[in-house]
Every structure is written in structure tokens, then in C-alpha cells.
């Protein structure tokens, strides 16, 4: 971003060295507009490299956690709405198309087309964030949030299953398989009547929930097995909430990038409206475009990794 801004700063202060035969956008420390353009682009790609590295940390957390606890991911991802995820993927790809076309329009000096395409890109970002907020608020309502704001966290802390999680899970599984007959969903209740259940001592001696009946049940959904909470190993149940921490941090950081991208697009859209861009000068449009595509790029990986776990 700083690249974009410094570029803008450079372009907006052409008068300071007026009097030469300069292109109004050419900063005096560049020989040619092309050199300036290439330098701006190189700087932007370096910035995008650091962005990749930053997201790399989160992807690393994801990889290590999924490698160690594949069942947690298999179970917990069922709480994410695949439909919204897929729609959002299409929305972002479409906004990438309008952005790339916007750069083309700016390069060709088609001002009004540039403005329209940038507005469409902005609309795409807004739709994406709208859908994301629907998803987030649903999670919030269901108390599947970060850390102790997650029902699975409470579950982990108390070693026995909280009724809230159980109810939640049943609602979800019902919603996911409306055709499914109720018997498949009837679960063997964990031994909550056990007077020792929940106390650390009892847990040490006899881990709860490891009952043969509780582990054997498989729900079949159109030939596909859906992992239920009861099938999770006890030590995996205690880690379910961490999946959501990873989910919220990855999509959250991505969401922040979408917001920043939208602000940048708004900025160049307003500049484009003032006909500031044309065949000789369109660097800001190009660089903001690169940023927007990177945001799309990250989502292209987040979608299958978080929503489409088999």
C-alpha cells in the first residue's frame, strides 16, 4: 500500500519540479515514465511478496494443526456453510475480472468505462463482505466464535458435553440432511449421570465418552460419511474450538484485506472520475488491481481449505 501511496504522492506533486519538459506524472528521479512504471510495479510485487509471507504464517498454523488433528477439521468444517463460501468465491473471481478489465480500460484511456468497472469491483467487495458478515453473525449467534466465546471451548474445559453444543450440533446436522430420518441422528448420550463425570479425578481414571456405543455410530449422507461429535476421540473434542480460531483468523485477516482493497478501489475510482488516468499514466489503477487480485488469490486457497474438507 505504501507503494501505491508513495506513487500517488509522487504523481500528485508534479508541480514541485515543473518547468522541465517532464511528463507531469514523471518524478525527477526517474528517467522515463516507463522506468517509473516498472519500478512501481516491482515495488508492488515486493509488497505482495510480504503479504504472501504474512498469510504464510496462518497457512502454516493451518497445515500443522490439520496434519496433527485431521478429524477435528473433518468434523468442525461441517459448521461452515459451503454454499456461502462457493458464492463468495464466484463473487471475488467476478470482481477480479471487472478489476482486470478496469485496468485495461484505464490503459486505453476509456475513463467512464474505467469508473463503471471499478464501481462493479467495489460492489463485488461489498457483496463479499455482506455474505461474510452473514456467516460471522450466524457463528456468533450459535456461539461458535474465538476462544472462550466458543461452545466447544466450554466443552473442552468441562470434559463433559455441554447441552448447548449438543443442541447446536443436532440442529446443524438436521439442517445439512433434511431427508435423513431421525433415527440416524439419535445419539447415545454421554454418561452425564455418572456422579464422577466432569471431575478431573474421574477423568484421569476413566476418560468419559469412550463408550463402544458412542464411537461406532456413523451417519451416512448420500453415501458419504459425516463425522459426528461422538465419533471424535476425546482429545480431539477438546480441540474443535481451535479450528474456529484458525478459521476466524484466516478469514478475518483476509476480510481486512478486502476492506483495505475496497478503500483503495474507491480512491482510484474517484481519481478516475476526474480523468486522471490514461494511456500514459495508469499506474495506481494497475497496482490497486494487483492488490485486489492478491486478495482473490488468498481466497482461492481459503475456500477449499476451510469449507471443502472431505
Amino acid at each position: 500500500m505504501s507503494t501505491v501511496e508513495s506513487n500517488a504522492a509522487v504523481s500528485e506533486a508534479p508541480d514541485s519540479h515543473a518547468g522541465h519538459n517532464h511528463d507531469p506524472h514523471l518524478a525527477h528521479h526517474f528517467d522515463t515514465p516507463d522506468q517509473q512504471y516498472q519500478s512501481g510495479k516491482l515495488g508492488m510485487w515486493m509488497f505482495l511478496g510480504t503479504e504472501v509471507l504474512m498469510f504464510g504464517g496462518l497457512f502454516c498454523a493451518y497445515s500443522v494443526y490439520r496434519h496433527n488433528h485431521p478429524e477435528v477439521f473433518e468434523y468442525a468444517h461441517q459448521y461452515l456453510d459451503k454454499k456461502w463460501g462457493a458464492i463468495n468465491t464466484i463473487v471475488l473471481i467476478t470482481s477480479s475480472l471487472t478489476m482486470a478489465w478496469g485496468v485495461r480500460a484505464a490503459q486505453l484511456g476509456k475513463t467512464s468505462l474505467t469508473v463503471v468497472l471499478l464501481a462493479l469491483t467495489l460492489l463485488g467487495g461489498a457483496i463479499f463482505m455482506g455474505i461474510k458478515s452473514i456467516e460471522y453473525s450466524t457463528k456468533w449467534k450459535e456461539q461458535i466464535f474465538i476462544g472462550s466465546n466458543n461452545n466447544f471451548y466450554a466443552d473442552a474445559a468441562e470434559t463433559t458435553r455441554k447441552p448447548a453444543v449438543e443442541k447446536l450440533e443436532e440442529e446443524h446436522l438436521h439442517a445439512m440432511q433434511p431427508h435423513e430420518a431421525a433415527p440416524a441422528l439419535t445419539k447415545v448420550e454421554p454418561d452425564v449421570t455418572d456422579p464422577n463425570a466432569g471431575t478431573p479425578d474421574a477423568a484421569l481414571i476413566k476418560p468419559p465418552n469412550i463408550t463402544p456405543a458412542g464411537l461406532s455410530e456413523k451417519t451416512i449422507n448420500a453415501g458419504r460419511e459425516v463425522l459426528t461429535y461422538d465419533e471424535l476421540k476425546v482429545h480431539d473434542r477438546h480441540r474443535v474450538y481451535t479450528f474456529f480460531a484458525i478459521y476466524f483468523f484466516m478469514t478475518g485477516l483476509h476480510g481486512i484485506h478486502v476492506l483495505v482493497g475496497m478503500a483503495l478501489i474507491l480512491w482510484i475510482m474517484l481519481r478516475a472520475r476526474r480523468s486522471e488516468f490514461g494511456p500514459t499514466y495508469f499506474t495506481p489503477v494497475d497496482l490497486v488491481g494487483l492488490y485486489w487480485h492478491l486478495v482473490d488469490l488468498i481466497w482461492i486457497f481459503l475456500f477449499p481449505l476451510l469449507y471443502l474438507i472431505h
Partner: peptide, 11 residues
């Protein structure tokens, strides 16, 4: 710096 415009950028 003489050539100020004239398709200086060739994207």
C-alpha cells in the same frame, strides 16, 4: 527527459 509523452509507457 525531452520525450515527455509519446507512448512512453508500453504496457
Amino acid at each position: 527527459t525531452e520525450d515527455s509523452h509519446a507512448g512512453a509507457v508500453h504496457p
